[in-house]
Design a protein around this nucleic acid. Structure first.
Length: 491
RNA sequence: CGGGGUAUAGCGCAGUUGGUAGCGUGCUACGUUCGGGACGUAGAGGUCGGGCGUUCGAGUCGCCCUACCCCGACCA
């Protein structure tokens, strides 16, 4: 492994790739556009999953699992939906291989053609609503509040580790309700869950809002999102929650009898976050020395590096290190004692910095004599020598402080890179030269939105919740506007 | 799918007018080291992406594939 990662100032994309690879989060696989998530990266995803799963269950949801394959005809039942996904679907056409009659290995058996092609799910609305049809007859069967953890495939032109891969891991919630109000409430409830998770666990500030019609999910009436600002000034959509109205209920003929004995279509929501959150995590906190992880999502909170010269010292110091580890583990702190004799301290220091371990303890003979330990924190790269007895309180407090500090740094960064613009020149200058979030007036038309996208590659990230209503004129068209919306270049 | 690249040791690369392949790093062993990615010595590791052609001779020249990367368009 080489010693350097590309600085952000030199090449941000390269820096991102270096972190993903050198922190051993993921790597490209033998399959085009698909990644291998390595153990350390997967451990972080598992922590993300565990917490979200808990939050879903606390809000009344249950996990279920639906098939990977979707009959082609299902996908086309909702017009906007098929329009949105048709161009990026992997299609299964055959179910058997055979030996090549010409002796060139193995070929698809032309006799094993499927009667109806199967689509590898790009999202599961259709297969789930075809199933819900069988589950729902009466208002007593509602609501249905299901989530599934799954992989999906979208055949993207260009991929980037975690941010956009052909296959990715995610969770998708799919709910069915008796009333519109209830489905809308669910849609909002879940975007709030995502926002809370982003803030409290990822230490990542997000803006919640509505997507414009252009940016809406294919098949949704309304799409809510959380948008985060990355260090290079680009926005990342980190999660979405859709109010689907009765679109899928109508497409799959899912009706129920209400209390008055009337037959009605069911109301729906769907919501999801993906392994893209890993990319968000990297680009929110990391620096030129490597990955920086908020303690709440760190697979290892504290690493202890013993420093020794002789075998006797090794014995003594490792014994002490294990004792410290034991004391900390009682407090639910994950501790790794790196007692490998095969790597040297300096190497280990660099390694754990690369991997973003929040706290590192160095323990040498000096410390054993003095009853101290050296504590280094990853977020600030500062070191302190502290008394051994007060370690528990100190570390507990430090982990909380790092979590808080990371959020503060991220929100300070976002504030410094959020602008309010009233002229096109200023708007253009900021978005082309600095990047960041820009609040500006928009006339509300899809044409203007598209024209701005065309000129600057800038999109409306969202119309924030509780947006201040104020009279103004559109940044591009000069037509009257009632509110500012959030613009940015996006991933 | 348009434009531009790249393909040589696990990884990153060099290879001159065509003459039989090298550097860094990593790996293995031993010794000295060990509080910020140590050093020395000795080793192992390559059908040069694939195919066809030119030539006495091809990593190098020509043609045809294939894969991947970057910039666009598309997108969580």
């Amino acid at each position: 492994m080489s010693k350097e990662i590309t600085p952000r100032s030199e090449n941000y994309s390269q820096w991102y790739n270096d972190i993903v690879r050198k922190a051993e989060l993921a790597e490209n696989s033998a399959v085009r556009g698909c990644m291998v998530i390595k153990p350390y990266g997967y451990a972080i995803w598992e922590k993300i999953q565990a917490q979200l799963d808990k939050m879903f269950k606390e809000t009344g949801h249950e996990n279920a699992y639906f098939p990977l394959f979707i009959p082609k005809s299902f996908l086309s039942k909702e017009a906007a939906h098929v329009e949105g996904f048709a161009k990026e679907c992997a299609v299964v056409t055959h179910y058997r291989l055979k030996n090549d009659p010409d002796g060139n290995g193995i070929v698809v058996d032309p006799d094993a053609k499927l009667e109806e092609e199967l689509i590898v799910r790009p999202t599961s609305e259709t297969i789930i609503w075809s199933t819900y049809k069988n589950w729902i007859q009466s208002y007593r069967d509602l609501p249905i509040l299901c989530n599934q953890w799954a992989n999906v495939v979208r055949w993207e032109m260009r991929t980037r580790l975690f941010l956009r891969t052909t296959e990715f891991l995610w969770q998708e919630g799919h709910t069915a309700h008796a009333t519109e109000a209830e489905a809308v409430e669910e849609t909002h409830k879940m975007i709030d869950v995502y926002a809370e998770f982003a803030k409290e666990w990822m230490a990542m500030p997000v803006i919640q809002g509505h997507k414009t019609e252009n940016e809406r999910f294919a098949g949704a009436i309304d799409t809510l999102c959380i948008e985060a600002l990355m260090q290079d000034g680009k926005a990342l959509q980190a999660g979405t929650s859709h109010f689907l109205g009765q679109n899928f209920a109508k497409a799959f003929d899912v009706k129920f009898t209400d209390k008055d004995g009337k037959l009605n279509y069911v109301w729906a929501s769907s919501w999801g976050v993906s392994t893209r959150l890993m990319g968000a995590l990297i680009m929110t906190h990391s620096d030129d020395k490597g990955f920086v992880l908020p303690p709440k999502l760190a697979p290892i909170h504290v690493v202890i590096v013993p420093i020794y010269k002789t075998p006797e010292q090794y014995e003594t110091i490792c014994a002490k290190a294990n004792e410290i580890a034991k004391r900390l583990r009682v407090l639910n702190i994950t501790v790794k004692v790196d007692d490998r004799d095969t790597q040297k301290p300096g190497w280990k220091f660099a390694e754990y910095e690369m991997k973003g371990v929040p706290v590192r303890l160095a323990l040498g003979s000096r410390d054993i004599e003095n009853g101290t330990v050296e504590v280094a924190r990853r977020d600030t790269l500062t070191k302190e020598t502290i008394e051994m007895e007060s370690l528990e309180a100190y570390i507990t407090n430090l982990l909380e402080e790092i979590q808080t500090n990371l959020y503060k740094k991220a929100i300070d960064f976002r504030n410094e890179n959020t602008y309010t613009c009233d002229t096109w020149n200023e708007f253009q200058d900021i978005l082309e030269n600095k990047g960041g979030f820009v609040y500006a007036h928009w006339d509300g038309t899809a044409e203007t939105e598209a024209a701005i996208k065309d000129k600057l590659k800038v999109t409306i990230r969202c119309i924030p919740f509780n947006n201040k209503q104020e009279d103004g004129v559109c940044i591009l068209s000069g037509k009257p506007s009632k509110q500012r919306v959030l613009f940015a270049k996006a991933y």
